[in-house]
C-alpha cells in the first residue's frame, strides 16, 4: 500500500518567496492584460464566504487577545474641516494611552490627520511608538494635478509624517486610464521613499468587486505599502466582502512577488464585534503574518472606545457605560 501522504507543514498557509520580484510593464496595455488575466470575483461567493466567517465565535482568551490586537491596529482618525490643534492633541493622548488607568492597554498604531496638523501631532507624540499618518494628494476627492498632489505629499513629509494615505484618481480608473492611476501612485511612492504609503482605493466609488480586485493589484504593482478601502467621506465605506477581496489580492501578490502589502479598512467600523469579524477574515485569508499593525489597520475614531469597553467587560464580566472612557 502506498504511504499515506499528508499536506506537508511547509506547504501550509501563504507561501512568500524570499526574493522580491515585482513585474514591470512596458506599457498600459501590458499592465491591463496582466490585471485582467487575474480573473474576476463572484459577488455571491464573496458575500457567502464572509457570512460564514462572520459566524466564528471568539471566546475567552482568544477574544481578549483579539481585542488588544485590534486596539494596536487602530489609526485614530480625525479628518474634519473643524479640526484644531486642541482636538489633535487630545487624539494623540488617547492614541498613546487609550485607557490612562490601565497601562496594559496597547497604544494605537497611528493618528491620522490632514497635512497641516502633522507637525502638531508629531510634536505631541514625541518619541512614542504611535506614528503620524497624513492624508494627502488632494484628499478626499483626488481632483488636482499631479504636481499639486506631490506638493501635498512633500508638505506632509516635511512636517514629519511617518505614513502617507493617498487617494487614487477614481475618475481615471473608471474611465479606463489605468496607467495614469499607476503612474500617479508610483510618483507618490517615489516621493515618499521609505515612508509608508497607503493607497486609498475608495471602494465605495469603484462599486464592483472586480474593480476592487483590479485596483488593489494596480496599487500594489505601483508600489503601495498598504491598500486602504475608503476615505470615510462617501456613502459606502469599508465592508467585509471588500476587505476579503483586498486581502486575497494581498495574499496572492505576496505569493507571486515576495512583497508583503498591508490592508487598511477605514470608515464604518464602529464596534468590537465588527472589528473581530475583520480579524477573523484576516486570520483565515492571509494568516498570521498579517495579524499585526504592520500589515493590518483599522481607520476609525469611535471604534477605539468600543474596544476599550469590551476589554473591560471581558475582565469584569459586567457591561460598561460609555462615559467610562474619554470621548475622543
Amino acid at each position: 500500500m502506498a504511504p499515506l501522504r499528508t499536506i506537508e507543514a511547509r506547504d501550509r498557509g501563504v507561501l512568500v518567496p524570499a526574493r522580491i520580484s515585482v513585474p514591470t510593464f512596458a506599457d498600459g496595455g501590458e499592465l491591463r492584460r496582466f490585471v485582467y488575466a487575474l480573473g474576476g470575483v463572484d459577488a455571491v461567493g464573496v458575500q457567502g464566504r464572509v457570512a460564514t466567517l462572520g459566524t466564528r465565535s471568539l471566546k475567552r482568551a482568544t477574544k481578549t487577545a483579539a481585542i488588544d490586537l485590534a486596539i494596536s491596529m487602530v489609526d485614530l482618525t480625525t479628518l474634519e474641516g473643524a479640526d484644531t490643534p486642541g482636538r489633535v492633541s487630545s487624539l494623540c493622548a488617547k492614541a498613546m494611552r487609550p485607557d490612562p488607568r490601565d497601562p496594559s492597554v496597547p497604544s494605537a498604531a497611528a493618528v491620522c490627520v490632514y497635512p497641516d496638523l502633522v507637525a502638531h501631532a508629531r510634536h505631541v507624540l514625541g518619541d512614542s511608538s504611535v506614528a503620524v499618518a497624513s492624508v494627502a494628494t488632494a484628499f478626499p476627492s483626488g481632483r488636482a494635478s499631479l504636481d499639486v498632489k506631490l506638493l501635498d505629499v512633500r508638505d506632509a513629509l516635511a512636517a514629519g509624517a511617518d505614513e502617507i494615505d493617498m487617494v487614487i484618481d477614481r475618475g481615471a480608473f473608471l474611465a479606463g486610464r489605468w496607467s495614469q492611476v499607476f503612474d500617479e501612485i508610483a510618483a507618490v511612492k517615489a516621493t515618499c521613499g521609505a515612508v509608508h504609503l497607503k493607497v486609498i482605493l475608495e471602494t465605495g466609488e469603484l462599486v464592483t468587486y472586480d474593480n476592487v480586485k483590479r485596483a488593489s493589484w494596480l496599487a500594489m504593482l505601483a508600489g503601495a505599502d498598504f491598500i486602504k478601502t475608503s476615505t470615510g467621506k462617501v456613502g459606502v465605506n469599508a465592508t467585509l466582502p471588500v476587505a476579503l477581496v483586498m486581502l486575497e489580492a494581498a495574499r496572492d501578490f505576496a505569493e507571486q512577488t515576495g512583497r508583503l502589502v498591508g490592508v487598511k479598512v477605514a470608515g464604518g467600523v464602529r464596534t468590537t464585534k465588527d472589528a473581530l469579524k475583520y480579524l477573523v477574515v484576516v486570520n483565515e485569508t492571509t494568516g498570521a503574518t498579517w495579524m499585526t499593525s504592520q500589515y493590518f489597520r483599522f481607520g476609525a475614531s469611535s471604534l477605539l472606545n468600543d474596544l476599550l469597553m469590551q476589554r473591560l467587560t471581558q475582565r469584569t464580566g459586567a457591561y460598561v457605560r460609555p462615559d467610562e472612557f474619554s470621548g475622543d
Binding site: 501550509r12 498557509g13 507561501l15 486570520n283 483565515e284 492571509t286 494568516g287 503574518t289 495579524m291
Partner: peptide, 15 residues
C-alpha cells in the same frame, strides 16, 4: 517577515 504565514493562526478557544 517570515516567509510563510500559517492560516487560522489565531487559535479559537472552544466555543
Amino acid at each position: 517577515p517570515s516567509h510563510t504565514s500559517p492560516l487560522g493562526a489565531l487559535a479559537y478557544d472552544a466555543a
